[in-house]
Amino acid sequence: MFSIVFKRALSAIPVLWIVATLTFIMVRIVPGGPFDMDKALPPEIVANIKAKYHLDKPLSQQYVLYLQRLAKGDLGVSYKYANRTVNDILTSAFPVSLELGLLGLFFAIIFGLPLGTIAAIKRGTAWDAICMTGATIGISVPTFVIGALLIFVFGLWLRILPVALWESGQHMILPALTLSASPAAYLARLTRSSILETLERDWVRTARSKGLGYWSTIIKHVLRNALIPIVTVLGPLTAILITGSFVVEFIFAVPGMGRFFITAVSNRDYDLIIGTTLVFGIILIVTNMIVDIAYTLLDPRIKIEG
């Protein structure tokens, strides 16, 4: 197991290097620089600033400098949030995004799996229709509309949950619910089809004919096997939940990475953009790895490739 993790990590390095390079090139192609400001600065002052951040050097040299720092684990400095390093910013924002993402995942699972299971077991009935309609609505509405709806109902109308901000556990409920809506719907649909497929298998019939009770068959055999394809998607799903919370962070004023990312792009905060992108890349790689490992645990027949 350890050697597999090590090998995976090693193979991630070139991917991350290419991601960093691509982003480095892209952000510099985009017109407008970090120091084009509302009120124009005298050229002498722009020269001072550029010298401070090494932006006066040729691009190739900037790139080499960047890679050298990157190799040491230094993601550079923010031009906009002066006096703060990118490492600093990301270490303060990442835990928030992680918290929000994991809570979102938790909601997605506790809503998605039961909905899908009920729909599959009661297939063809009104239950099935209700569950699946709910799930399809979840993936058919933009996130900000769901957020708006939740704020309206729980925050402004019923007044039982805070409208926004990030203070206590209660404050986390609405953002996490908003974030979880579409993954929950996705999981429900997947669970349903996965269970249906498993139910058709011969061994389920065998188990049933051997006199095993309906519910115990479902719980002991069907769910476990139906879980495999679900676990596969949980990887990318977790990554999406952790990294994809831009809109939710905006709506609910949550101090996570997403907000930094959007403002970084509009500020042309080069190092911060690349840094955030790299963190996203790492999250994706790590979650995929965890999933592969979980996969082997669930189904020992599968071996992970190195």
Partner: peptide, 16 residues
């Protein structure tokens, strides 16, 4: 690699 570039980054940069 294309997957590990955040969609939003690509969309925003292309948009600009």
């Amino acid at each position: 690699i294309a997957y590990s570039l955040p969609d939003l980054l690509v969309m925003i940069l292309m948009g600009v």
